[in-house]
Simulated assay, not measured.
Amino acid sequence: MAKARRSNDWGFPRWRGYGSSREATNVRLCDRHGCEEKGDCPAPKAPNSPDRWYFCQKHAAEYNSKWDYFEGLDKAEKEARAKSERQESAGYAEASHYGWTGSGDGSRSADEMRALDLLELEADADHAAVKKAYREKAKLVHPDVKPGDKEAAAEFQKLQVAYEVLKIAEVRREWKG
């Protein structure tokens, strides 16, 4: 009688890699006719259906590009479904300010992003665009142009603060780099 050999897969350290077992593994192929790629991207066959197609990445992207979540619904049903979806996800939108990232590439602070929003600029705006936008907006609400208008004066002060924040950040970036 042959002595049973101990497997290399016991204990620590593992003497063989984690994906290197010798048993055959089942690989599901893409459900697209004629495709021989691995089908690891599930896609629903119909709205609210548990049945799934399994496509390769290429065919999943093709399938999803044509997918209409509201297909087959009339206008009132579409609006009702969209409204319920917004209500269900409202908590996520409300808590979005807790996220690690916001718009932009991460190189700007939250104060800088608020200043850019006030000047109606994109997150990647350079200092020349900031200066131009500030001057255009400041000309409209300057106290010399609108004397005695408290709202215009408050808006002008907001623009000044926004410009200062962005100017200081630009100087800091130049100094560091």
Rank of each mutant, 00 (worst) to 15 (best):
A110N: 11
R5S: 12
Y98Q: 08
L119K: 06
Y163L: 02
D111S: 08
L159V: 00
Q157G: 06
R173S: 14
A123N: 08
G148D: 14
A82I: 14
F70R: 01
A154N: 11
S84Q: 13
A138E: 12
D40V: 02
K83E: 13
A129W: 01
E71P: 01
D111T: 13
A4R: 09
E77Y: 05
G104F: 05
E36K: 12
E120A: 15
D144Q: 08
E122Q: 06
E77D: 13
A169Y: 13
C56I: 11
K139F: 09
R28T: 14
V161G: 01
Y63Q: 04
E164S: 12
K150G: 04
I168Y: 12
H97N: 14
A125S: 14
A93Q: 12
G148T: 09
A115W: 09
W175I: 12
D31V: 02
K139V: 05
A115V: 00
H59F: 06
A43H: 09
E37Y: 08
A24W: 00
C41L: 03
K3W: 04
K58H: 15
E37M: 14
K176E: 05
F55Y: 15
C35K: 09
N48R: 07
E85N: 03
L119V: 01
R52T: 08
Y69D: 01
E36C: 06
Q87C: 02
S65W: 01
R81E: 13
Q160E: 11
R52A: 04
S96D: 14
T25K: 15
I168E: 11
A80N: 03
A138L: 15
A152Y: 05
V141E: 05
S89C: 06
R16M: 10
K146A: 10
C35F: 09
P13K: 03
P42Y: 01
Q157I: 01
D105T: 04
A115F: 05
V165H: 06
E62C: 04
M1H: 11
L29P: 09
L159I: 01
L29F: 04
